[in-house]
């Protein structure tokens, strides 16, 4: 336990001498790794990001003495290797993934959880997020323009506001489905915010 803590402290120290900044860099790198792994179709992106962190931590004693450059670049190299390993594994594997690991939530379950989570939002935010998701194509673009005009904010600010609210809502829905699946003893399928994950992140910022 102490060894892991020491290694983790050393990793933070390597990222930045300032502990707070190091913590932020760690979060950014971990979230970035998850986004990359999700985008490249790596199975279980959260776990792969943890694995990348572990690999770098284990090599840290020699790295600190020999590596020159931004640590993010080293993490990127490790991520690339993990992506290749995942591809090779998928090419040779003949294992059948158990149903319980791939089962996706029922449509009605998703709708029910969404309705519950929407009710947890203040009425104006409920109204906003539902309004934002109306219409398609040109009509949607025009609608967003009008919404921004009504709120006297830029379209970019409107998009930012909608994105943040959606992240909150999605997190709530994920947790609701997780609870619901736990009740029926079915393992949940991963659901997340475009790969920004804490997943199985076992190294907590200290």
């Amino acid at each position: 336990m102490t060894i892991i803590k020491d290694l983790f402290d050393a990793l933070l120290e390597w990222l930045d001498p300032d502990r707070e900044k190091a913590g932020e860099r760690y979060e950014t790198i971990h979230a970035g790794l998850v986004r990359i792994f999700v985008s490249k179709g790596v199975s279980d992106a959260g776990h792969a990001a943890d694995e990348a962190m572990d690999r770098v931590m284990r090599r840290l004693p020699e790295l600190r003495a020999t590596y020159v450059g931004d640590p993010a670049k080293y993490f990127h190299g490790v991520a690339r290797n993990l992506i290749l390993e995942d591809r090779r594994r998928k090419e040779v594997t003949t294992d059948v993934v158990p149903d319980s690991l791939t089962k996706e939530p029922e449509k009605s379950e998703m709708a029910e959880c969404l309705a519950k989570c929407l009710k947890l939002l203040p009425p104006d935010k409920q109204e906003f997020i539902l309004d934002y998701h109306l219409y398609q194509g040109h009509a949607k673009i025009q609608h967003h323009r009008e919404m921004a005009g009504e709120l006297s904010i830029s379209e970019g600010a409107l998009r930012t506001r909608a994105h943040h609210l959606r992240v909150t809502l999605e997190k709530c829905v994920v947790e609701c489905i997780e609870r619901s699946m736990a009740k029926t003893k079915v393992a949940p399928n991963a659901i997340g915010n475009s790969g920004v994950g804490r997943g199985g992140n076992k190294h907590q910022k200290q």
Binding site: G46, G156, H163, H164, P188, N189, V196, G197, R198, N201
Partner: peptide, 15 residues
């Protein structure tokens, strides 16, 4: 399969 959810809400800049 562990759940991957949003852990970090960061500012969206207008790129």
């Amino acid at each position: 399969m562990p759940l991957v959810i949003a852990a970090l809400v960061v500012g969206v800049t207008n790129i």
